[in-house]
């Protein structure tokens, strides 16, 4: 994974894992990699891997069964919330950047429509 090295690495990995959950690459109830495997997979140390799971657990994205491992949450609503949250984040950044360029709401919408038209 390519990192933005000026941003905390653990947050970037969490973001990536959230995306995998929304895209269905990590399914409800699925067992997540061990700390050790997560560390190798994302080129982080095992303390960061543990921190990632701790943080995700606190936010309800996953849960730990003692001695067995970490599992993706089984709550469907969580996945919907996650999807909305991530879309919201993207939109917020996009709108912010567009407004910076001087676009207003209606312009932005027509820009999107034009873009989608061109892509066809």
């Amino acid at each position: 994974m390519e990192y933005n090295t000026g941003m905390p690495i653990y947050l970037q990995v969490i973001h990536e894992l959230k995306k995998k959950m929304v895209k269905g690459e990590l399914k409800p109830g699925e067992k997540m990699p061990s700390n050790r495997d997560l560390a190798v997979l994302y080129k982080v140390n095992q303390n960061t891997a543990a921190r990632i799971y701790r943080e995700m657990e606190t936010r309800g994205y996953c849960f730990t069964k003692r001695g067995i491992g970490t599992f993706v949450s089984e709550e469907e609503e969580m996945f919907e919330d996650l999807k909305k949250e991530m879309a919201g984040e993207l939109l917020r950044n996009f709108i912010h950047e567009m407004e910076d360029l001087g676009y207003e709401k209606d312009d932005i919408i027509s820009q999107i429509e034009d873009y989608k038209e061109e892509q066809k």
Partner: peptide, 8 residues
Amino acid sequence: DEIESFVE
């Protein structure tokens, strides 16, 4: 660059 992501 190589150690940036994992050194504490």
